[in-house]
Structure formats: C-alpha cells, structure tokens
Design a protein around this nucleic acid. Sequence first.
DNA 1: TAATAAATGAGACTTATTCTCATTTATTGT
DNA 2: ACAATAAATGAGAATAAGTCTCATTTATTA
Lengths: 147, 147
Amino acid sequence: MSQSSRKILSEHSVSITNPRILVLEALLDFGNPITIDELQLKLGGSVAKSTLYRVLNDLKKINILNEFTSPDNSTVVELILEDHSHHHHLFCSDCGEVIDVELSEEFEIMLTKEIQKVQKKFNFEITDHRVEMFGLCTDECANCKKS
Amino acid sequence: MSQSSRKILSEHSVSITNPRILVLEALLDFGNPITIDELQLKLGGSVAKSTLYRVLNDLKKINILNEFTSPDNSTVVELILEDHSHHHHLFCSDCGEVIDVELSEEFEIMLTKEIQKVQKKFNFEITDHRVEMFGLCTDECANCKKS
DNA sequence: TAATAAATGAGACTTATTCTCATTTATTGT
DNA sequence: ACAATAAATGAGAATAAGTCTCATTTATTA
Ligand SMILES: [Mn+2]
Ligand SMILES: [Mn+2]
Ligand SMILES: [Zn+2]
Ligand SMILES: [Zn+2]
C-alpha cells in the first residue's frame, strides 16, 4: 500500500511527500467515494486542513481524483484508478451514502449517441457526463432512520 | 407576469408577499437556469439576502424550484413549471452557462430500465435521477475565452 | 379595521475553502 | 553525503455562501 501510493505519485511526476502519501493511502484504504469530513476523520489530524485541500487539488490536477457534490451538499472525492472503469453514482438521501454503480454497456452506448445529438444541436464539445441516481437505502442500513 | 407569479403562489397556498413575487418574476423572466449570484444581481438589492434564501427554500418546499451545483461549484436554480417537462443539463466548463436539454424518450425509457436494475441490485428505492453533460461552447459565446 | 400569525431586513454567526507567510522538506547536481 | 534551490507544509487569518436571531413590518382572516 505504501508502495502503490508512492508509485502513483512518481508516475505522475509529483513530488513524494508525507501528506500526499497519507491522503492517498486513506483514499486507497477506504476504497469508496468518501466525504471530505470522513476523510478528515480518517486522517485524524495527521495532515493540516490547508494541506489536505491542497493535496486534493494536486490529485485533481493530475486527473486521479474525482470530486462531486452530494445532494446534502457535502463534497465527495474518489480516486480514479487504472482498473476503475467508467461508472456513476447512487446517493441515499437519508444517510448520505454514495455508491458506485456501473450501468450496462448498451446503456452507455445509447447515452453516447444522445450526447452526439446534443453536441450537434447546441454546438458544444461535450467531454464528460454523469448519471446520478437519488433515493433511499431500504434495508439494513445502520445509519438510515427507519422511520 | 405579475399575475402568474401571484397565481403560482396562491395555487400552492403560500402567502403572497413582495419578495416572493420579485424572486418568482426574476426567475420567470430569466427563463433559464440561473446562478444565485446572477439572481441577486437581477434583483439588484430589492430583496434582502436572508430573504432571498428563505424564499428559495419556500419554493423548494412546494416543489416548484430545482436546485443543483454546477461544476464550478456555484448554486444554480430553476423553476419547475407545469409545461416544463423532465429534462437534463449541459454545462459549459468555460463560461459557466447551463443549458436545458431534453433527451429522447427511448433514452429515458432505457434509463428507467437501468434504474430498475440498480434498485434491485442495491435494494434501494430510487426516486430521482439526473444526467449531466460537461463541455465547451464552441461557438459565438461572448463570455467564453476563445483561446 | 383589529387581531394574529407569518414574513421580512439587517446584520451577526457558522463553517467550508482559500490564502499568507514563516518554516520544513524534497529534489538535483556536485 | 551535502548544499543549494525550489516546492510543500502547518498554523491560523481571511473569505464568502448560507443560516440564524430578533425587532419590525406585512399579509390574512374575520
Ligand atoms: Mn465512484
Ligand atoms: Mn433545467
Ligand atoms: Zn441509508
Ligand atoms: Zn461558453
């Protein structure tokens, strides 16, 4: 693990520093999309707040970090790994969990065709897309209030 | 216009007040998704900041306002009107413009099927979804830097 | 029109993110 | 391994979007 975070940094010609290693390892270890709050908890003060944000920006710049806003307005980040294929997200409106979702290849193909139509219609160059789904965990979620 | 904003409010049994009328008319007049900054500009100080946020929350509560975050992290709002059908959004990463996009019915049907699969797989109750597309205006945008 | 509840404005407050700057650390060439 | 140099860090100040408080104004209703 310590190896792979260093490797990731050197592969992207970014200098290898302790905060960067710590943040990368926290992200690798968690393995799922994580809010910045949770990430800070996980780091337990080992990285200064200002440095954490700087490191996250560094990772965004080298395109290995994806950041988005959840419906409750918390900032969520996730590593983009090599084996990590294109996917989308499912959000629980109650407990705030964010789940990675892969949609079918046929669906993605159809979406690509739609995007091509939109590009033409609006004379846009579309470089990325996102499908987000919102709802409620209906089962065995310890954090969801089972009203 | 003054009529329809009053009508909207009374139809939703919300009391008719000046700030609510002013905000609704600004949104109706603009007609497109608008950032809160732009909305404040358009209102030109006629509504206090605290009141603006309260009014926007009121409109969300009666389900006639949609709010989302653009890729540059500004908050965007848009009215949900009766004639306003289900649609998605296209964002210019350069000038920040947000454009309403309707995708084909076949696409939406296929997406619904994908969502059903996801519901089963994760035991979720999915209530809403969003498709977002990101890119660049390639033409005649006064605000886009034509690098 | 009077009584009552609801909404507003002004500004204080909160809090996520950015910024500053003195200090520490990583890198590179010797 | 070492010194020189540039880059990164930590601590905390600054910024700013959004919320909250409370005294005052306004809408509703009878
Ligand atoms: Mn993900
Ligand atoms: Mn829209
Ligand atoms: Zn849940
Ligand atoms: Zn543009």
